[in-house]
Design a protein around this nucleic acid. Sequence first.
DNA 1: GGGCCCGCAGGG
DNA 2: CCCTGCGGGCCC
Length: 561
Amino acid sequence: MRCLNPPVKLVPLGDWDCPDCLLPPPSDMPSIVQKPVAVPEEGNLVSKIHAIQADSTLTDGEKAKRRQELMSKGLVTNYSAEASSANGDKKSADGNKRNATLEMMDNSLNCIFCLQLAERPVTTPCGHNFCLKCFQRWVGQGKKTCGKCRAAIPAKMATNPRINSALVMAIRMARSVVNSNSGPSKVYTYRDNDSRPDKCFTTSRAVKTGKANACSGKIFVTIAPDHFGPITAEYDPTRGQGVLVGECWEDRMECRQWGAHLPHVAGIAGQSDYGSQSVALSGGYEDDEDHGEWFLYTGSGGRDLSGNKRTNKEQSFDQKFDKMNEALRVSCKHGYPIRVVRSHKEKRSAYAPDAGVRYDGVYRIEMCWRKKGVQGHKVCRYLLVRCDNEPAPWTSDEHGDRPRPLPVVKELKSATDVFERKSSPAWAYTEGVGWGWSREPPASRKTSGGGPSEATQKRKQLSVQQRLLKEFGCNACRKVLDQPISVPCGHNFCKSCLDSVFSSQDSRERKGVSGRTLRTQKVVKRCPNCKIDISEFLVSPQIMNQQKLKRKQPNWKSPCL
DNA sequence: GGGCCCGCAGGG
DNA sequence: CCCTGCGGGCCC
């Protein structure tokens, strides 16, 4: 429900927040149910509109007139308890070839309670749809069954409802069919990344799962790694469309390949002296608080990573505004756009996708501060508010964000180190134009992901003679090989050179400043040339005879050349 | 489902 | 070069 710009949708429950201004509607807002208009059994609104569109005897003008007539009777569909296919019930399995969207449009798109097109729709296993707010209110009253058919609502769903994004799309399409003369005005694509790079397996484990492929594999977009803002079509040579809001990937590795969020473990991408380009909401920090159009994000750090851990749920010291946390503060200071991806691993948010990782558009950090986190140690906090020209994946709006006043954040009362932007933001809204750069975006300090790498360019400059010397000499002493040893990565060394390199190496135990044990370093013996671990090979290295060496050479493609 | 492990990318 | 990280597979 919007509390601005009448006509206002009237709903029975007075606790909606306006998605534009993020505030509850005024207390004097009338609380009346808009009376639904009865719909004949034979067909619902959307299928009727389809029939009109398909009628070849009508001109475009006549079609538009018919649609208007239908619309004037009321935007109420036939909600006669037909299960939607959104939960993958039997209907879609037993050979029904219609796609999910069409099927859902034939069923009810309306909320069971407020009888309007569901806003942020949630679908129960019995197939009935609710607005998120209506659902939360219903469950909050202690109800454990569907308000329509009394089927049980699973406990998990009651505590963690998820927005049905397929239904959002159906509603959006239904609206655009109704509102325009030429069918849907916009095509929203969800795609699976079916194309995988064909190289870069590194470990046997990775070969098995194919994950290292994505990890070190090709980045499909040509943005520089420190590129700010949306990834537009000009950076997408493979598809020519850019990264669209709502695009989904299987996991963080695949998300990385499309540039939306590059780090594959860390939640924050950025540089402390430059700014942060993107963040991931993936449930790693329990202080996070997601409201869709805005959310409260927690900084990184403050955790004990001893014992070779990559993450740790427990916080054992305070976070500071340094490293990635400082990068976020820099983006706040300048008002840079920050790409946001949500992961299915964020279990407590209704706005997270059911599976995989989804790009949700750009947000701006309006302010940041520190507060005591739920685990008792101080955490850095950031208020991010959406500012994208595309509508969010959970709303059936056809337009993107408008500037909105900041939400009321209760925890600010007890916050310290509060930081707010003082100058005008670099990413700003212009009436009639939308969101965009109000000044030059920060110049990239890195090369774009598309062009040839520095290594490739360097390779071209090497003469044939230099390349031969590099390939057939000892890679340590640069002389002709004496007692040649060819390590698994293909580099050649004199036996004596290799021995002397590793004679000084030993395993190391390290201590951190606070006395805690840091991650024990793996005892790695790396090829002096390309740093590949050759410790296993070194257990019993074999000296190559010249024949073997010659046979081996053609297969060797040095990564250093 | 929870704990463990560890390759990898990228910051500093 | 070392440190850090909201992954993801595997084992139990």
